[in-house]
Design a protein around this nucleic acid. Structure first.
Lengths: 102, 102
DNA sequence: ACACGCGATATAGTTTTCTATATCATTTCA
DNA sequence: TGAAATGATATAGAAAACTATATCGCGTGT
């Protein structure tokens, strides 16, 4: 449930592959050496926050600090975005938050 | 919305204060020197992912990589969790963590 | 006034990321 | 066949986090 260093690297790698990017291409996008990118994806380095953010941005991901209390709902949303037809199991979108605030 | 280094530190600081913890107390909880904690909250260091995760956990926060597509919904949920009368935790164990030593 | 807890800051030493660059083993494809 | 692209790995140096420890100024309460 809680993810740690390795989980993050898995997410990053999966996101890169989902976008069909090679490490070298992403390397250029994010301004990070390919050699280092490899280490990051292998979870063999404890990257700095700036690197993570930079990398995430290049992959259309955004880093968020989520209160534990909100975690289930957040994960549900993220899952539903990953698999846009997901009705295999799940609490119906009880979270119909078409909010418009701000 | 997109947050960067400084925003993260603000969130961390706000979370700590919301829990009524001093830097020194959190320092013990998270295993991070108070002096370093201060720098982190001031955004004067580019912390490592492990530090961030560690710190987040101590504050009942969880780090998530959110697809941009899901961001609005996620942010809405997060807002609704710590919004107006923010109780931040209903069943709040009256932890008397005045652990200390020194 | 004095002690206390608070956050900020200083020094110095250790550890590690991060960089640039190059190479390697596979796989893919013309 | 072999050229090209892939991810993994190596070396060496630079920069910065992280540590322990101590101190400082400020506010608060006794």
């Amino acid at each position: 449930m809680n993810y740690s260093l390795e989980d993050i690297s898995k997410v990053l790698k999966a996101a890169r592959e989902a976008k069909g990017l090679s490490q070298r291409t992403l390397s250029n996008l994010a301004g990070i050496p390919q050699s280092h990118l490899s280490k990051i994806e292998n979870g063999s380095v404890d990257i700095r926050l700036s690197s993570l953010i930079q990398l995430a941005r290049s992959l259309d991901l955004e880093l968020k600090l989520v209160p534990m209390k909100a975690l289930p709902a957040v994960e549900s949303i993220i899952r539903s975005v990953h698999s846009p037809g997901d009705r295999t199991s799940g609490p119906r979108p009880a979270y119909t938050l078409d909010d418009e605030d701000e």
